[in-house]
Amino acid sequence: MSRHYDVQAVRREFPAADRMVYLDSGFQAPLARPVKAAIELFLREGLETAGPKSVWLDRVEETRARGARFLGVSAQEIAFTKNTSESMNIAANALPLRAGDKVLMIHGDHPNNAYAFLNLQRKGVEVRFVPMTDIVDAASFLPHIDEKTRAISMSHVTFHAGHRFDIASIGALCADKKLYFAVDVMQAIGVVPIDARAMQASFVGSGTHKGLLVPQGLGLLYWNKALNELEPTYLATASLAEPPADLIATSEILAPAPTARRFELGNFNLPAIHALGAAIDMIEQIGVQNIQNHCFDLGDHLIAQLDELDIRLVGPRDRRHRAPHIYVIGLPASEWLGYFEQNGVRVSPERDGIRVSFGMFNTIADVDRLVELIRKRGLKTSSRAA
């Protein structure tokens, strides 16, 4: 049962949830029936009509508008990308950073965000890492800001232990100090309510294969269109303000589009965009706030069970500082991952243990099955909470 929505009805849309205890949505969400149906529609149209491309492109723009609404921004500020890594690389290279400029990041944050900016070291840009603690807010960054600091880039939610950082206070700090602010929301989107404009972000990047329920190969990028100086480092016909009608490239026609399409290249991942439209419809019918609250309840139950077993939770416990859906249990992955898999429970190995990541379809019974397996096997002293 859930206090927030009919979780059993939602669960019926995810056949994989009946085949296993799926606690790995932080890695990739299982396919939902409405998402599968949207992909099948695209395939059927391609099979039967060789592709109604104008119809498909109209759906692209409909989905762009849905994605923009989902993030609290305008459709002109949303670009489609391949994944989070591409989104963050586009952001890093669009910032007007020069040799001697400094970017602040969080030590141990997602490597594909970090590498996008570390690659700028070849241009003489300095990347400085701020220590990660259970609470990261404006005060965490303030002592590290100096006259050379130009940007902060970070995740909203961490993938490895479910930290949920105070993005609002950091965005306000960036606005006050006139810093660019890039945010990776891959592990938050679809579960944690997001208002990209309220974040005061320059860029917000994400993939879609976790909380947005779409198979891999599609990403989103929000660009604050007030920051017109942020231009792509590469260019294609699709990214131009006025593509030449005869499709003959000239050096006179180079101005990028005034919308986030300036960051898009070539053809779209049309099947995935069809899937995304269906996924957003499904999520909005339930409500992101309801999904978040349901996952928090599951997390509370998991934490209480771990406390009874005297097993350590890695990362923050307080709802104010933890993600609703990501929890790392202090059990050595090398000893436990195979055991869970053999018993029909899908989880992920992480730096400090076993990561449990909930989706909208999970139930208290899923948590209880996980805990039952831990009780059945028993613990070594090293797994006990400190």
Rank of each mutant, 00 (worst) to 15 (best):
G359W: 01
F203D: 12
V183C: 05
S74G: 15
S74C: 08
K376M: 08
K82N: 12
V288D: 04
I326L: 01
W223Q: 12
Q216W: 05
A50Y: 11
L95A: 01
R319H: 02
D137V: 11
A198Y: 12
S357A: 10
E61I: 07
V204E: 09
S239C: 13
P34V: 08
E13C: 14
R351K: 10
S206I: 04
I39S: 10
V127P: 00
K177D: 02
I145S: 02
I374G: 00
D58L: 10
R197H: 12
S239F: 11
A139G: 12
I364M: 13
L370D: 00
E284V: 04
A201K: 00
R128Q: 05
L212E: 00
V288I: 11
R59C: 14
L265S: 12
E48C: 10
N290A: 14
Y234V: 11
D246E: 13
E48W: 12
T84M: 14
L104W: 05
M154C: 10
H294W: 06
L47I: 12
I170H: 06
F358L: 04
V157R: 00
K82M: 14
F340C: 09
V214R: 01
P15L: 06
P332F: 05
R369G: 01
Q292N: 14
H107P: 07
P96W: 05
T208M: 04
R346P: 03
K177H: 14
E126S: 06
I286V: 15
D300S: 11
V356K: 03
A32R: 05
H301V: 09
R69K: 15
Y234A: 15
F340P: 08
L142W: 00
S74R: 11
D184Y: 01
P111R: 05
E61W: 15
F129Y: 15
L57V: 15
I286W: 10
R64W: 06
K36F: 11
A182F: 04
V130K: 15
I286N: 03
A151W: 01
C295E: 09
V185T: 02
D366I: 07
M88G: 05
D352Q: 10
N267I: 08
T363M: 06
E61M: 15
M105G: 07
G46D: 14
G124C: 06
D366E: 03
F263E: 02
R150E: 03
D368F: 03
G190S: 07
D24P: 04
D307I: 03
I374F: 01
I364C: 09
E231W: 13
K380A: 07
E231G: 13
A249S: 04
P34S: 08
